[in-house]
Amino acid sequence: MTVLDRFYEGDIRALSKVISYVENQQDRYRELLGRLFRQGGHSLRVGLTGPPGAGKSTLVNCLARAFLKQNKKVGVIAVDPTSPFTGGALLGDRVRMNDFPSDGRFYFRSMATRGALGGLAATTDNITVVYDSFGFDVTLIETVGVGQIELDIINTCDVVVVILVPESGDSVQTMKAGLMEIADIFCVNKADREGSDRLIMELRQTLDTRKKIENAWRVPVISTVGIQNKNIDRLIMKLEEFVAFQKESGKFEKHRKTQLKKKIENILQEKISGIILDKMKEFADFDKIITDMYEGKTDPYTLAGELFDRVSR
């Protein structure tokens, strides 16, 4: 029996092995993903992002519990940064995930960014395909959250929740424009703390001053206290409202199609650049070319064109 056979039988160990295979981009990972992709398409992908200390892990925990209560199968992907100097990572997001069922209805995987800078790992999107095919109704994706705008999440999720806390006031100022772009729902967490009312008001004001587009989703600002599981039902309600709105307006499908277009572009880019870089090694004395460029005998712009021409011939 192969790992994939066991995967189809719902074996958790096999799921884990498949994820590693895809994450490590082992030999036939695209072929494997191809098979899995065709069986998917049902999982709702919810992204959670926000600055450090906003309580993302806590809210992931709350949401997972709430979805489980609705008898949904829940998968989580939590991304933490890889150290650019050592290549290692300390993944601590599992720490709150105690007392979850271990019967396959809940699954949690920590991922390191492995060099990617957009808030997710390069392979996170592929892992959602695996989750989808395994039969999770909801996939929760937690970004790195280092206090900058993390755009990858738009390309991977159906809905994006931006989580803020009263203390993140300063970073909100600098991130404001980007946050407004990516948020489908704003969630002010730790709302029992001083300053949360002000933050909520500021967010609402900023949202109001944006140009009104007809029939557009009105981004709600809700407050939660994740640590006490407060107002999570409201967050779920807004998530459901948003998804219903998207589906009714045809935006859900449109958004997914945009993502797929982006996906195929990415795969092609990866493939093509892979081929070119491989070929390049074959016929060029690379060190010499670099030296030539350094000495001004040639330039990278001309050279890249020449290289491409030679490969495509």
Binding site: G53, S57, L90, V95
Partner: peptide, 13 residues
């Protein structure tokens, strides 16, 4: 009152 669990950000070094 619930039980206390450390936050994920407390795990970092």
């Amino acid at each position: 009152w619930g039980e206390h669990v450390e936050s994920a950000s407390a795990m970092q070094v």
